[in-house]
């Protein structure tokens, strides 16, 4: 049996707003196995981003539990949660969010430097990751010298830097044109085939269709799940693949 990387149980998130609080997520339970690729879809405002932030330990649920590789991230203090995000989770944002003053390679090195990886090792891994996302020749360019698609590739390389157990992406194709978006989907597909466990939130029908499982949300709850490609035929990841979670 495959390891369950992510197990969310009855997760709720209320935003305290003046008057009636907003119940953004109302009791979601979700399991994600190692090597899976889940796409969360649903109308705007149904709570997708809120859920993803909870799964990634950058926000805390009002109630419920979220275990990632057996550790309850909902109960961690800030220092532990920060450490967990650094080594256990890779984030990709709709707007890329690279550090504008750092080069592409330095952006990829940033989480590794924070994790105290020796300089030589992180320089080598940054090169390897940039080559993997097809930007081997752009390592010394700064974000403003890169197109949106290229910036998003750098952001993906950065997310994979510390070999996270889980890659989370919120609308990764949202700011890209159709062709670049298709290339991005191909990259996610390759990552998943190489063993990376992925959860994406998207409006992009094409991105959703590429995932193994599509989870439909409405009003803060899961209303439907569609299994498109069962995990059984997933190829086990070669241990050296850039996106592979550390054993």
């Amino acid at each position: 049996m495959r390891e369950i990387v992510l197990a969310a149980r009855d997760v709720r998130r209320d935003y305290p707003v003046a008057g009636e609080p907003v119940h953004a997520v109302r009791g979601i339970s979700l399991d994600v196995a190692a090597g899976d690729w889940v796409a969360i879809v649903g109308p705007s405002g149904c709570g997708k981003s809120t859920l993803l932030n909870l799964l990634g330990a950058i926000d805390r649920p009002t109630t419920g539990s979220i275990a990632i590789r057996g550790r309850d991230v909902a109960r961690m203090n800030d220092a532990d949660a920060t450490r967990f995000r650094l080594t256990g989770i890779g984030f990709v944002f709709q707007r890329f969010y690279l550090m504008p003053t750092l080069t592409a390679a330095e952006n990829v090195e940033l989480p590794m430097a924070e994790a105290k990886l020796p300089r030589a090792a992180r320089v080598a891994r940054a090169r390897e990751l940039l080559a993997y996302v097809g930007l081997g020749a752009r390592a010394d360019h700064r974000p403003y010298q890169l197109s949106g698609g290229e910036q998003q590739r750098v952001a993906i390389a950065r997310a994979l830097a510390n070999r996270p157990a889980l890659l989370l992406a919120d609308e990764p194709t949202g700011e890209l044109d159709a062709r670049t978006g298709t290339e991005m989907i191909a990259l996610f597909d390759r990552l998943n085939r190489d063993g990376t466990t992925i959860v994406t939130v998207t409006h992009d029908e094409e991105l959703a269709q590429a995932a193994r499982r599509v989870v439909h949300m409405r009003d803060g709850a899961i209303v439907d799940q569609v299994l498109r490609r069962p995990l059984a035929d997933a190829v086990p990841a070669p241990p050296h693949a850039p996106g592979t979670a550390q054993a």
């Binding site: 950058i58 220092a79 920060t82 967990f84 650094l86 984030f91 944002f93 989480p111 924070e114």
Partner: peptide, 16 residues
């Protein structure tokens, strides 16, 4: 503020 939030999101410690 956005950059800082991103750094925090990807795991940069508070004291840093």
């Amino acid at each position: 503020i956005g950059e800082i939030a991103v750094m925090r999101a990807i795991g940069v410690a508070r004291w840093r």
